[in-house]
Design a protein around this nucleic acid. Structure first.
Lengths: 199, 199
DNA sequence: GGAATGGTGGACCGAACGGTCAAGAATCTC
DNA sequence: GAGATTCTTGACCGTTCGGTCCACCATTCC
């Protein structure tokens, strides 16, 4: 044992993640990473390896957090169908314009870096499974027709959500984006119970 | 007048476009551009300006072509609703894994380059308008409920299409992708006439 | 408190980048 | 055919990149 680390790994990873999220992988230089982390080159390399490995660490931390939040959001809602509907509107408020780090990374590096592609595949398969579980719960609660295939509907919801995220990146105004999200929600998850009218 | 150009501008732009499409903007070096175009640095700079301008030219040629094809596809179909449904399945076959150049560029550069962002916004507004026209025709043909807002439905279809394109980029297998596209098509454009059953 | 341990920061490196320029080659006008 | 004009080629430039390395120093154990 000797001199302990002067930085918090989680904190550094968070700052680095924000930087990659804002600028992308290629457009982020080591100088940027040193600035946002407050660390020197040597420390960064000793702690995380090279730029790509640091990026992959940041990406993993991002998807881990995303899935945690997704799990919570899907579990907390009193009615599963409400959680599913919220899934489509969620990407509008937060962050908004810079999209999703995983999606951005897939677009930028998916062709060139098999590990990024594989991680993207795994990540969205997990998301699909989480959403499918929620769909199944909504079916048990009578809000989604029992005949539907949970996985298929989950894939449709996920694709629609990613589409909404992307349309947000193109600069589509919030009003149109919200309307689009509501429209997709209404058509993918129509009101199934008899008590309320469909919007 | 003196020595004429030894290359075809359209051809060069096409080759360059493919390169940017495959590798993205930052990951494409001038050497790559020289290789795929067969031109020297000087010729490229004299004809198109710097790398960014060349990229923007390639991007414009891509969106122009895309809109031409979209116009054709929407006009050719005997029934407008079929064209709209095809819109959701189209991204699956062709090219597939590398997605859409405009979408990729938006993800990579949208945050950093206002001109790319503005072009993305214009492009997708145009696409929305073209699709909305087709929705209106489908309404006149009785295949889409007359009450629906053509622009709103067009935005939903466009978002869904971009979502499908993106899921293709993540490595989702063709079967699942096709099923997702069909599912979204069925829910966004349900069979409205009484003669055929809904899939 | 001395020595060993390991984190830290910045100087340093070769390579590759985007971009410039000048000289040579090819074509048109007269 | 001579000259003018444009295109083409490739050598060249300064900058910045990612990555390495080492001298310095704070901490811990004995």
């Amino acid at each position: 044992m000797a001199r302990p680390r002067a930085f918090d790994e989680k904190q550094v990873l968070g700052a680095v993640r924000e930087q990659f999220w804002d600028a992308g992988y290629a457009a982020t230089s080591l100088e940027d990473l040193m600035r946002v982390s407050g660390l020197g080159k040597g420390s960064l390399y000793a702690a995380f390896g090279d730029k790509r490995q640091l990026f992959l660490r940041a990406l993993h931390s991002y998807t881990d957090d995303s899935h945690s939040h997704l799990r919570e959001a899907l579990a907390e809602a009193p009615r599963a169908v409400d959680a599913l509907r919220m899934l489509l509107e969620a990407p509008i408020d937060a962050g908004a314009r810079r999209g999703c780090l995983m999606a951005n990374s897939t677009c930028e590096l998916g062709n060139a870096d098999p590990e990024v592609l594989a991680h993207a595949h795994r990540t969205y398969e997990t998301s699909t499974a989480l959403i499918a579980d929620c769909v199944a719960r909504a079916q048990r609660e009578g809000d989604v027709p029992a005949g539907a295939d949970p996985i298929a509907l989950a894939r449709a919801i996920l694709a629609a959500q990613q589409g909404i995220v992307f349309m947000g990146r193109t600069g589509l105004d919030t009003a149109a984006l919200t309307a689009t999200a509501r429209s997709l929600a209404a058509q993918l998850l129509p009101n199934h119970s008899a008590t309320q009218p469909t919007a």
